[in-house]
């Protein structure tokens, strides 16, 4: 089973249906069935919204999620989910989870904000999450802040929008994608399918 954390941040309908296309046992996890997370072979933390809301709404899940991260089960953090992996964000006052060292900052003033639409990746290093994906593949982004990992080794792929910013990060069993795989048509489902592969 792959668990999708339902913490009131974003479009669960799409991530659930998207995952279902490539995997037969997705399960929504709320505070009511949180103990089921122990049997998950992978976990997805979706996300749309603001940094502080995300941190606060995830609080009831934090203990269980930290345990999952510590147990080597792969966890995929999407969009704002990826941003809270870092230490802090210019968007909010809450402390980030600090699972990947670095900060989250506002997009530069010379581009329209949010960064909204389809953009292509620049692969920086190998990761199973992006198997079969090339620099010519486009993904759907929508965000106003971006992650700046302090260790370049954690950056799997970047994307150009005013600056060259982190699009995909990973560290051990923690994976973050700034784009929305569940909104990125066939290539997005391909990435979800890769994540399923990582989980098995």
């Amino acid at each position: 089973m792959i668990a999708i954390i339902d913490y009131g941040m974003g479009n669960l309908f799409s991530i659930y249906n998207g995952l279902k296309r490539v995997y037969d046992r997705p399960m929504l996890i709320t505070v009511d069935n949180i103990t089921d997370i122990a049997s998950a072979e992978g976990v997805i933390v979706p996300g749309v919204g603001a940094f502080d809301d995300c941190i606060r709404n995830l609080k009831p899940f934090s203990e269980a999620l930290i345990e999952v991260v510590g147990s080597d089960v792969p966890v995929l953090w999407i969009c704002i989910g990826m941003q809270i992996l870092f230490d802090a964000s210019e968007e909010g006052n809450e402390k980030g989870w600090g699972l990947i060292p670095g900060d989250v900052v506002r997009l530069p003033a010379n581009v329209r904000v949010p960064h909204m639409g389809w953009n292509n990746l620049h692969l920086q290093r190998h990761s199973e999450l992006l198997d079969g994906i090339t620099d010519a593949d486009y993904f759907y982004f929508v965000h106003s802040y971006y992650c700046v990992p302090s260790d370049d080794d954690n950056t799997v792929a970047t994307v150009e929008y005013g600056v060259e910013l982190a699009a995909v990060v990973s560290k051990d069993n923690v994976y973050g994608v700034q784009f929305h795989p569940e909104k990125s048509s066939k290539k997005g489902l391909h990435v979800l399918s890769n994540f399923v592969g990582v989980c098995k």
């Binding site: 309908f13 799409s14 249906n17 998207g18 296309r21 759907y140 929508v142 569940e182 909104k183 990125s184 048509s185 066939k186 997005g188 489902l189």
Partner: peptide, 11 residues
């Protein structure tokens, strides 16, 4: 929307 969103993965 439900019918579309369960089949089409774009905004």
């Amino acid at each position: 929307i439900e019918k579309t969103a369960s089949n089409v993965f774009m905004p």
